[in-house]
Design a protein around this nucleic acid. Structure first.
Length: 648
DNA sequence: GCAAGGTC
């Protein structure tokens, strides 16, 4: 009987199970926890490093955050206080009702333990969840020693090392997240209540005007709409869509001119493009063109053949999965994530929420490839990798230190899966096999000619080895027409030369993959929540979606990309706040970005939690006050119509 | 009735 008891708590059941398997070597008892069907207690023996030595271990988990924040009872009714008071009102942190059995289990298990080992994800939110676990455990046993395991994947040796080299919980990260939670609650409640209540107080007969103004939202719904204000993540998301909408709408086409030179040779029409591409002044182009004609002959100034390649993709992250899913799989990002989580829960693919685009050295990629060799479609390619074509995947720049890139962990016959599951599983598998394949190889021929004072060029591509493209049909790389032979310094008289005329075209409306890219680049939401924000601005009818007409960029035949067009409501929301001259507009991503930067400073210890909290709240309070003043002014001049327009 | 972040 091991003398010391140690309690281990992970962030989610899947990690608890995996860690328990590794540490126990398979000799483990699983017990149900009353009150929650997902949580299990795993019991086994393990020898930790000094001073604990051989221990009897209980490994359990939470389900994400244990606690929630709320205003006290007397602030919860929407009319109980002025919304601005919510910037200062007290807040209470309690264990969420549905998490009570989980917290109780930890409290109980801690009672006879010497130490608590926290196994939450190694990110900021994970650190905060760890602090919630610590709180629950200390309630059962105040003398408990608290440690934290640092791990970035569930590979066996890595887990064992993490168990034997625990560190302390990082309280800076804990407080940074606590501040974030508080800020989100105060802002969300204050703005939502204020805007909704103001509208409700405007009286009924404005209803008709609104509809006549062309709202596409039924007014009855609007009055009772409780979620009118888009939050600090939804708002910038909507802002991107509206911004693009206006760039399309206000686009003024501009004429441009260019010169094309053609040469017929060996029955092939070779088209040379102008190095200067195009000019927006017709007169200049004509003058240059005439100089070319006057020269009569062109001379081959460069003749180059060089190997070229198309790189295999990077290991798959959540953001990429969502982008590519909405491009190739006819699913919106939220659906893709739902399906991916389902596949993960069934054990077919790895954890689908990850920012990591590099595989750990310890992971046995060949074994994972081997599992796919039995498939009818991609099996032969997998077998080819095992027979010598295997390449170590490229190393991306991101590592969240918690999860590996998304990859298949087990083989499942696609025929046994539902349609959506099959599409996502196939994509994950093909992407993984593509990562482990050689780059596609080709040969690029460039011919450059001097004609008058101008340079023209043409390119020809021959694809020699498709390599990864054989298993990854989502990308295209095709040979162009074969170029006839030209000789360096050769002089010839072009068959034809023309001035061409064109017009600049507007950008397309925002597509889902573009939107995800922008959110990611601007730090709006996290990999796990981006799809939710997008879905929310659709549900609340701030935007509508429609398939991209014609051949949109990055389009694969048979698949359709959705584009986002803001509704009148969506445009008005962004414009309303923009128009009153908020320089750091809520619709622009700056504020959320600053918040992100502030959190990083708190984690680095260069800013205190209090400074961060109050600076952020002050900034938003300032915006809040200006909005209130604007509305008051409109009301003072008896202009309820514009108050409504302002908001709606 | 409010937010965003975890996870099932």
């Amino acid at each position: 009987m091991a003398p010391n008891r140690i309690l281990c708590v992970a962030e989610k059941p899947s990690i608890a199970k995996a860690v328990a398997q590794h540490l126990s070597g398979g000799h483990v008892n699983a017990r149900n926890v009353p009150g929650n069907q997902y949580i299990k207690n795993y019991e086994f023996d393990f020898s930790f490093g000094q001073p604990w030595g051989s221990c009897s271990v209980t490994m359990t988990s939470v389900l994400g955050h244990l606690t929630e924040v709320e205003f006290p009872q007397n602030y919860r009714r929407w009319n109980s206080c002025a919304p601005a008071q919510l910037f200062e009102a007290p807040i209470e942190t309690t264990v969420a009702k549905d998490k009570k059995p989980i917290a109780d289990n930890i409290t109980k298990q801690a009672r006879y333990a010497k130490a608590l080992f926290i196994w939450t994800d190694c990110d900021r939110e994970g650190e905060h969840i760890g602090s919630e676990v610590r709180q629950a455990a200390l309630e059962g046993n105040s003398r408990l020693q608290v440690k934290r395991a640092r791990f970035s994947n569930t590979e066996r040796a890595h887990i064992v090392r993490a168990a034997q080299n625990p560190v302390d919980l990082d309280d800076r990260q804990v407080t940074a997240v606590a501040a974030r939670i508080e800020i989100d609650l105060r802002l969300g409640a204050a703005f939502t209540r204020y805007q909704t209540l103001t509208l409700q107080g405007m009286g009924g007969d404005l209803a008709e005007k609104l509809i006549s103004y062309g709202q596409n939202l039924p007014l009855g719904l609007l009055w009772f709409y409780s979620e009118l204000f888009p939050g600090s993540c939804q708002f910038p998301t909507l802002g991107f869509v509206v911004d693009r909408y206006f760039r399309v709408k206000n686009f003024i086409p501009e004429k441009f001119w260019s010169i094309k030179v053609d040469q017929m040779r060996d029955d092939v029409k070779v088209q040379f493009s102008w190095r200067r591409n195009r000019l927006f002044d017709r007169g200049s182009v004509i003058v240059i063109f005439e100089r070319c004609l006057a020269a009569r002959t062109a001379r081959v100034s460069k003749m180059q053949k060089k190997p070229t390649s198309k790189w295999r993709p990077l290991p798959l992250t959540t953001v990429e999965l969502q982008k590519l899913g909405s491009m190739y799989l006819r699913m919106d990002s939220q659906k893709v994530m739902k399906v991916a989580e389902d596949l993960y829960n069934k054990g077919w693919i790895s954890y689908p929420r990850t920012e990591t685009d590099q595989f750990d050295k310890g992971i046995d990629l060949r074994a994972l490839v081997q599992k796919q060799a039995q498939d009818r479609d991609w099996g032969p390619h997998a077998q080819g990798l095992l027979n010598g074509n295997f390449k170590q995947p490229r190393t991306g720049r991101n590592n969240d230190q918690a999860h590996p890139p998304i990859h298949p962990v087990n083989y499942v016959s696609p025929g046994t899966l539902g349609q959506d599951d099959r599409k996502v599983y196939e994509f994950v598998v093909r992407r993984f096999l593509a990562c482990c394949s050689e780059d596609a190889k080709g040969e690029m021929t460039t011919i450059e000619i001097e004609y008058g004072d101008e340079t023209f060029f043409t390119n020809g591509l021959i694809v020699l080895q498709r390599n990864y493209l054989e298993v990854y049909p989502y990308e295209r790389w095709e040979s162009s027409q074969q170029l006839p032979n030209f000789v360096l310094h050769e002089v010839f008289e072009p068959t034809e030369a023309n001035v061409t005329e064109g017009e600049t075209t507007p950008p397309g409306y925002m597509t889902e993959p573009e939107l995800i890219g922008l959110m990611d680049a601007n730090g709006i939401g996290t990999d796990a929540t981006m799809a939710e924000h997008i879905s929310k601005i659709k549900d609340r009818e701030y935007v509508q979606t429609q398939p991209v007409g014609g051949g949109g960029r990055g389009r694969v035949p048979g698949n359709s990309v959705q584009q986002f067009i803001p509704t009148t409501l969506g445009v008005a929301l962004i414009e309303g706040y923009d128009n009153i001259g908020l320089d750091t507009s809520l619709g622009k991503p700056f504020l959320r970005k600053e918040m992100e930067a502030g959190m990083r400073e708190v984690c680095a210890g260069t800013k205190s939690r209090n400074d961060f909290l109050h600076e952020t709240l002050d900034r938003y309070r300032d915006a809040f006050v200006r909005i209130q003043q604007q509305v008051a002014m409109l009301r003072a001049v008896r202009d309820p119509y514009h108050v409504i327009i302002f908001f709606v």
